[in-house]
Simulated assay, not measured.
Amino acid sequence: MLQADIIEQCKKNNRKAQMQLYNQYCQGMYIVAKRFVKDSAEAEDVVQEAFINAFTRLHQYHAEVTFGAWLKRIVVNKSLDFLKARKQELVELNEVHLKVVETEKDSKWLVDDAITVNDVKLAIAKLPDKYQYVVMLYLIEGYDHEEISEILGISNVSSRTQLSRGKRKLQELLKVKKNGSRY
């Protein structure tokens, strides 16, 4: 059965089709939620709520983007809602998902070779929430500023500003002192 057919069956409340769609996307959406929340069980809860939300709002999905991208946005929003409600820190990043940060001034944002992925994870966790969320959405999830502004309910300019400030704070946190230890 084609994905479009499965989605149409889900819109008709076909439980078998819903289970098929759930099985197809469950693991990937769990990984997304796990990046934002600390606990495995909490990430599972976020994913469950996201799927419930997606199935109840499936009539709003019109295939302007892939179903996976549409669902991912719901998972990210549910994760952020969960964090706001619980005031929890963002979870560790997966090394695979870190990428070089592009800035307006430099073509690439590079860090000292002595800095480890764990150092980057710890530095991101120390950022204030408003910078942390934008940095995570931009660097890890790959959203652009327009999408980030929609997700967080901020202006496009605020997204750019918070990303710029977040990157600057990350660079400060990752600077190596003269004696070799980090701040």
Rank of each mutant, 00 (worst) to 15 (best):
L170V: 03
Q88W: 08
E146H: 12
E141V: 08
Y61V: 03
L2S: 13
M136I: 04
K38M: 08
K108M: 12
M1F: 06
R15E: 09
D5S: 05
L122F: 13
A50T: 05
R165E: 10
S164H: 14
V134D: 01
N179V: 01
S155Y: 03
M19K: 10
K126R: 15
I151R: 06
T161S: 14
K169D: 01
T161F: 12
D129R: 14
L152T: 03
L90G: 07
F82Y: 14
V91E: 14
A69Y: 09
R160P: 00
E64D: 15
L71D: 02
T56Y: 08
E92S: 11
F67G: 00
V76I: 15
L152V: 04
S40G: 09
A63W: 03
H97R: 12
E89V: 12
R86K: 14
L71F: 11
G68W: 04
L80N: 03
I148P: 04
V46M: 08
Y183R: 13
L80I: 15
K169F: 01
N179P: 00
K121M: 12
K169R: 13
E44P: 01
N23K: 11
P128N: 06
L137T: 00
Y133N: 07
I148A: 03
I151E: 10
A114D: 14
M1K: 08
S107I: 11
V111E: 04
S79L: 04
G68D: 05
F67L: 14
V111K: 02
A125C: 05
V65Y: 07
I6G: 02
M19V: 01
Q162H: 14
S107W: 06
I115F: 05
S164E: 08
Y25K: 02
L170H: 02
E42K: 14
K177N: 15
S79F: 01
A50R: 04
K72V: 05
S158L: 01
N179H: 08
V117I: 15
K105A: 13
Q3G: 01
K121S: 10
K177Q: 15
F51D: 01
I6F: 03
K177F: 10
L98R: 08
I7A: 05
L90I: 13
R182N: 09
A17I: 04
A54H: 00
M1G: 09
K108G: 01
T66Q: 11
D144L: 02
S107T: 10
L137F: 04
K126H: 09
A41Y: 08
G142N: 11
L173P: 02
E102S: 13
F55N: 00
E141R: 02
A69T: 12
V117N: 11
K34F: 10
M136P: 00
P128D: 14
G166E: 04
I140N: 04
E92G: 10
Y133F: 11
D45H: 09
A4E: 14
L139K: 04
N53I: 07
S40F: 07
I7R: 05
C10M: 12
V101L: 15
Y131N: 07
W70V: 05
N53F: 12
K16P: 02
T161E: 12
